[in-house]
Amino acid sequence: MNEMDLLTRLRAEVPAEVSPRAADRCYAAFAAERHTEPRRAAPAAPRWRPSSARLSLPRLALAAGLAAAAAAGIVVAVPRSPAHGPAPLTVRELAYRAATAALAAPSVAPSQWAYMGVGHSTNCPKGPDTPAAGSSGIPYCSITDQPESWQTADGTRGAYYDEHGHLVVRDNPSVGAQIAYASAVKLPADPRALVKYLYGNVSRTDSVSPPGNASELWLGTFYAVVGLLQDYILPPRLAAELFRALPYVHGVRVMQAAGLVGFTWVGFTAESRSVRVPARTQTMMLDPSTYAVTGAATVSASGRILATMEVPAKIPVSGPGVRP
């Protein structure tokens, strides 16, 4: 052993891991410059997506929405386009980009009404890579329009126009989040504490098989985060902390793909290994340019996108039934 070995030994007990504080500073700075420098033109938005100022929280819950998508509506051809999109991202990078975008959103009161617009759900039971019988190799998927609706920021009230054109306003619309808005705004601010709380909450409230199955509990934690982000218009700081919490949720990965209707997205995904939904991943989709939440997708174990639920951003309006 010589002096160089001794020096190396002095370093041996120092862990090679970056501190969250340094990561916070750097990711925020990198993302912030994006908003101050001239950029290339962003990818074109889907035709149905409002182009005005938006809040980035879609409404429909993952499982329920994707199940609804199975009810086929219009049948359209989906081009077999290769996967493309932005540069590969880590969960942490994407989380900080999404958090930075969330912080830029305006803060609204819990009772603020927001226009939910018209979204689409797509369903490809055999997967988009499966050629339809008799076709020229282009797979077919069903696309169903979701009716336009309104909702308050805290999710306690919702509205829609019925078939006669009458505005229906109702209390407590069905939302998928497991945690009420009033409780959500009191969640811990630190991302790790947030994950710890949500994991504990899932452990107490969800029945997983087998009981105590950690991977299922982590998946439930992922759903809890997604549910909060999708179902409410949260205070920007809380929304940002939820995104920052995602890197601490075990099993969460980044997925980038071309969507079923031809737009690219990037998202957080976590795999379900339950008996009921074998070997599929549930994904929260984000716009690769704005990092706004744009919906949810179900992807098979082989990487095929089976279904997506795409919804426009929530836009604050003066009341129920008012379109922006």
């Binding site: 002095l10 370093r11 120092v14 862990p15 090679a16 891991e17 970056v18 501190s19 340094a22 990561a23 750097c26 990711y27 990198f30 993302a31 410059e33 994006r34 420098e37 950029r39 290339r40 540069a87 590969p88 991202l89 880590t90 942490r92 990078e93 900080y96 980009r97």
Partner: peptide, 26 residues
């Protein structure tokens, strides 16, 4: 890439920050 797409620099941070942190911490 980061020269025209600043947030791409995050990839460099992800790749090397732990190594630099270990050195500086020591």
């Amino acid at each position: 890439r980061s020269r025209h797409e600043p947030e791409a620099f995050a990839a460099l941070f992800t790749r090397h920050s732990a190594t630099i942190q270990r050195y500086v911490t020591r």
